[in-house]
Design a protein around this nucleic acid. Sequence first.
DNA 1: CATTATAATGCTCACTTGGAGCATAAATGG
DNA 2: CCATTTATGCTCCAAGTGAGCATTATAATG
Lengths: 295, 295
Amino acid sequence: MTRKLTLSLDAVIVAVTAEQPRILTTTRSHGHAVPALPFGPLDTDQDLTLELGLRRWVTKQTGHDLGYVEQLYTFGDRDRRREARGMRLLSVAYLGLVKEAQPAPGAAWLDCYEVLPWEDRRSGIAAVVINTLLPALDRWAGRNALRRQRVDANFGGRRPWDPIRVLERYELLYEAQLVPEYQRDRSRKPDPKLQSGVELAYDHRRIAATALGRLRGKLKYRPVVFELLPETFTLFRLQRTVEALTGMRLHKQNFRRLIEHGQLVEATGTFDRPARGRPAELFRFRREVVRARVY
Amino acid sequence: MTRKLTLSLDAVIVAVTAEQPRILTTTRSHGHAVPALPFGPLDTDQDLTLELGLRRWVTKQTGHDLGYVEQLYTFGDRDRRREARGMRLLSVAYLGLVKEAQPAPGAAWLDCYEVLPWEDRRSGIAAVVINTLLPALDRWAGRNALRRQRVDANFGGRRPWDPIRVLERYELLYEAQLVPEYQRDRSRKPDPKLQSGVELAYDHRRIAATALGRLRGKLKYRPVVFELLPETFTLFRLQRTVEALTGMRLHKQNFRRLIEHGQLVEATGTFDRPARGRPAELFRFRREVVRARVY
DNA sequence: CATTATAATGCTCACTTGGAGCATAAATGG
DNA sequence: CCATTTATGCTCCAAGTGAGCATTATAATG
């Protein structure tokens, strides 16, 4: 007899507040101490498409209306932890972007870089990388040339840091047993000294890594940042938002050059009211231009 | 009562023979006259992962061992055509690359550019585009500025041809009712004068378009071409294979420059035996280099 | 009113990348 | 030797990218 198939739609809902990318997590609806990504079922009768199903339950459960939505990946590994007997669970993960980080009942915004601390390089390489991860990776690699190269390609200083490779870095840390998930997946106790970053339930940290990597990749060739910003914004805020997502600082003048060249924004004539300093002009995203260009 | 969920693993299996990219299709196992992509079920008891499930039934049904495999997309729209009453069908589509286009029992290799003729620009813009598609798209756009821009961005000469946007182009043609699927999805008769390209069953042409776009994108930053080539090959054959996939001609000297710079191949010292002309040296893919770099 | 913090802006420079062209060498069959 | 085919070497140009220097604009603060 074959197991019954069940489907869950997992959502990585991202917002950027106070120059920090955040993801929506929930601590309800499952018996674990660690936070989990929100997920919901597909209504096989009502939901015409998977995306509509996702939008439906996200709106219902969190009160957020998703703007940009993108399918990430479908996870279907047989997995004792989440599956009941006689059941096979399939998760279709989605990335969703929302404009504001309003609090949601039963849910909480969690800083991306608490989950994946090694991904934030805006103020240099994080302390945890230098003090904990790099030495541990070095020990793990030992004399194994292949391992050394992998560490070097993902975390090393030889090749330039690639913000896209979020998932590769997470998987390397997983293999090197530097995230508690490795031991948890094997029903063992993790070494508390070596673990870094906030743990998520199930394989949700992996999904979050997939999401961040995809989002960083998209930024380069599709104007998705604007989904995370209010109607009007200063160019500097735009830059800070991009920096928050890529985890890297950008050269201001070059960023402006890029924006002007792309012709994606237009000045509104109104100005910001900062606490001090020169007021910055507010800009608006020219949605019409993109519609014609992208579709 | 909710519908029962069923899962099918759809495979776009690509090979390149005689400088033509081909996909594996089958005419068995469904009652339609048009060819379909091969698909198989997930064994919810045995298959540990979706990818292993795919590899299992592809090997069993077609005799091909898949080399490179990549998940493409999960399709879950409610769809009367493929679904029986009380059932909801989910398709997880995969891209698989194989080295040789050996004949398989019950299956046939179909030229990619018979399915998506507008995607081959190796000998200039295809006749069907100039004679049929562009005039029809022009009529469809009419005075609608948004439509005009979309046509221009995808097929027009203003912006340079982007080989990646296979799916966008297919979807534009679908909306413009220039592929028979549009009418078929609405149980109407298509206009035979306007249709171009070989039709596939269900939404399989859309899946094929997704696959080709993804493959073209991957080519640029991952050495996946080698999965389609024999153990040793001439640099010119390598170039021809890339050209076949991207649908564009490449500058020979620049291509060599790129290959040498990447250090992905090494000379074997043996040479090709061509019918006439200077023999070309055979090269080998340096798999070790990539392993360390990519993972 | 000068100072200071903040942001916007103009400009240069070096370097890399990618596209395109010109020319030549090598090898082989006829 | 010639035609054919492939391999190679080299140059040029345009566009893009990363980084730095200097200056101006604006408003709050003392």
